[in-house]
């Protein structure tokens, strides 16, 4: 076992809405070791972004965190920290790359400034050192002509280049944990692989831990150690990437897997191939949240929410898991 960087225990995040309490993340637990990458997969709306913002503690004022929730980063509980303590963690210990690089950079500040301010605040660098380091970082993330680009504004860069800048900002203070929330979803297919490769290289070179969030099973395949599948705010299956593909237990995971685009598919095919819609998170059904859409559902599924069971390595939340005797 390697050094544990992140230990999420029973994270619950809800939002106050006009219709009532929306339980966006509902009892999520996992650990992540240094040097490892955890893939988090799920349909849109399954709570991936809320989970990532819960870890970063970047939630809006209408949010509520469950009383039993704990997030230990390097052994320190983020949920018990003051805003000032958290600020010192964001950057040097944890960092995030957002989905849409078009909106994630400030349009009124040069990209150099946006990198330099992290260095100057956290590493107490002088302006000149910070600028030199910013150019280095831009070079490291593969931005052409870094010494020119450093003075440019986001609108002068392409989407892929902006995402490189966002990555440069994230790794500037060598964080232990990097969260990438659908880092390629908003990008051209042609640059998606480049950005994912870059992330992977950065994580490996700097020996960080990474959470790679995606709704695309295909992205997870080659680039993660473990994979957690999310549905309706819960982790419904978690396993090393190989077992997940070969010994799928959860019907939902199976459905996601069968919707991976194939070479024969027309380009830009949508992944929402699973029929039906995710449940209402304000008034969730009493049983398995996937039951209304599940081909294997039976009466028992509607009675109680299935608990996560299985081995330490491979867990699932289904009373009739696939590929086991119980399913037979």
């Amino acid at each position: 076992m390697g050094e544990i960087i992140l230990d999420v225990r029973n994270q619950r995040t809800a939002f106050a809405t006009g219709r009532g309490m929306l339980q966006a993340v509902d009892g999520v637990s996992f650990t992540l070791e240094r040097g490892k990458t955890l893939g988090v997969v799920g349909e849109s709306g399954s709570g991936k972004s809320v989970l990532s913002r819960s870890i970063m503690r970047l939630l809006p004022g209408t949010s509520m965190t469950g009383p039993g929730s704990q997030i230990l980063l390097n052994g320190k509980d983020l949920t018990a920290m003051t805003e000032n303590q958290l600020r010192r963690m964001r950057g040097p210990e944890m960092a995030i790359v957002f989905q849409d690089p078009m909106t994630a950079l400030n349009p009124t500040l040069s990209i150099g400034k946006q990198i330099m301010e992290v260095l100057m605040f956290h590493l107490k660098m002088s302006k000149r050192d910070a600028r030199a380091k910013a150019v280095d970082l831009l070079k490291a993330v593969g931005l052409p002509q870094p010494d020119v680009r450093v003075d440019q504004y986001p609108h002068q860069l392409s989407g892929g280049m902006r995402q490189r800048v966002a990555i440069a900002i994230a790794i500037a203070c060598e964080p232990d944990l990097l969260i990438a929330d659908e880092p390629t979803t908003a990008l051209d297919v042609t640059v998606q692989a480049e950005i994912l490769d870059l992330l992977q290289r950065m994580v490996r070179e700097r020996n960080m831990a990474m959470i790679l969030i995606t709704h695309d099973m295909g992205v997870v395949a080659g680039r993660c150690d473990d994979v957690a599948v999310m549905y309706a705010g819960k982790i419904v299956e978690k396993a090393p990437v190989r077992s997940l593909f070969s010994e799928t237990r959860m019907p939902y995971t199976a459905a996601l897997l069968s919707s991976i685009p194939r070479v024969t598919d027309p380009p830009h095919r949508k992944l929402d191939a699973i029929e039906g819609r995710p449940p209402d998170l304000i008034n969730p059904p009493p049983g398995c949240p996937f039951a209304p859409r599940c081909r294997h559902a039976e009466d028992a599924c509607n009675r109680a929410v299935p608990e996560l069971t299985g081995t330490a390595d491979h867990q699932w939340a289904c009373i009739k898991p696939l590929n086991t005797e119980a399913a037979a």
């Binding site: 970047l58 950057g91 995030i96 957002f98 950079l105 966002a166």
Partner: peptide
């Protein structure tokens, strides 16, 4: 905006 969330994620003060 997302870029404000990013600024917070960078640890910038309010």
């Amino acid at each position: 905006e997302n870029y404000i969330a990013l600024a917070r994620a960078k640890g910038m003060s309010n």
